[in-house]
Nucleic acid binder design. Structure first.
Lengths: 188, 188
DNA sequence: CAACCAATCTTGTCATTGACAAGTTCACCT
DNA sequence: AGGTGAACTTGTCAATGACAAGATTGGTTG
């Protein structure tokens, strides 16, 4: 019918990239299998072959996101200042917003997917390892401290992405995140 | 056709309550105007009369949520310990999960809705007033401190709701929130 | 008290979507 | 050369959101 080749060649990645782009523009609710297919130039049922269903596509995107987050944190190495880890976390969320927004929406993905769980575990392990050195210096229970640190950076990232934070913080998320994380560390 | 009265009498509130219940069970993506209509016992187009469209219903639900949050925080009065405000915030999120989940999803609501913005402003004002006394004692810029506090409790609430936090924190969100907030205040 | 009126709710319809089924094309391997 | 399975297609169905037009009702006014 059309002159495009029957085999796309890289359809899976193309769909994931397109999905991330749609989410960055309009949020996860705007992601439609048929729209992605149109954007990439394939038939409306092609995505189902690679991902099964819509949740399958979201699962693949979230898995990809956890892997990238783990990469970013592992590149960091062990940190003694929470701010470095916080900046990495927030930078990932802002820079890879399309994936980050799906990672913490359990209702959109197949939570029991093995690949997802593995990538999730790797990212969490990397985060914990990165913060371990810092939290050891604190008086409180290390786990409570880790949860506080995670809550702080995660909350900041989501609030920043939603644009509800006061504009006085500036336009650079990393700089603002560092300042906010400094409140927890007590450094200035 | 059926024997139910033509006028429901309290359809608007009934739909909002049903929507909150659906979200608590299955998340915002599971909310369907037609399903809500069925649950409440009206025709499939009845919801549109009260809310216009799906986003209109979500907007009303979010507005309701901001009002309830503002009520909860104002009941608190001025606080000198962040933990009290944090517990109130998290308790609202966990207790009114169906509304909380919609309040921070800009893509689901009509963000420019006047009633929404008013309720939002009231809630944010109440939070800021509650924390003002506490943040004044800190060395850092008060606004940065306020953002840090908000980020911490908001992040904790969302992570808690998603069930990704370690189970060692216990089953009571308020207790865990108090402990985690204590890391920021430095009190133990 | 009757007639109206605006709000409330209904039925009917349409384009879009996700999911599924069955067929077609193609790359690769033997 | 031939087959074999993965990649992709067309076709279809029920469900949904949105819209249009009509039916019902409580209140309100003349």
């Amino acid at each position: 019918m059309s002159d495009r080749p029957y085999h796309h060649g890289d359809l899976r990645d193309a769909l994931l990239t397109a999905a991330a782009a749609v989410i960055e523009e309009s949020g996860p609710a705007a992601v439609t299998l048929r729209d992605l297919a149109r954007r990439v130039g394939v038939s409306h049922a092609a995505p189902a072959h690679h991902f099964g269903d819509r949740a399958g596509l979201m699962t693949a995107l979230a898995t990809d996101g956890y892997s990238r987050l783990a990469d970013a944190v592992e590149r960091l190495g062990p940190v003694t200042d929470l701010r470095a880890a916080g900046v990495a976390y927030v930078s990932f969320a802002v820079g890879d917003r399309g994936r980050f927004e799906v990672m913490f929406r359990p209702e959109l993905v197949h939570q029991d997917d093995p690949a997802l769980r593995a990538a999730q575990a790797r990212a969490m392990g990397a985060l914990q390892a990165a913060v371990a050195g810092w939290s050891a210096d604190r008086a409180e229970d290390p786990e409570t401290v880790a949860v506080a640190a995670w809550s702080l950076v995660h909350g900041f990232a989501t609030l920043w992405l939603q644009g509800v934070l006061p504009p006085d913080l500036g336009a650079d998320a990393a700089t603002a995140a560092s300042a906010v994380a400094g409140v927890l560390t007590g450094t200035d």
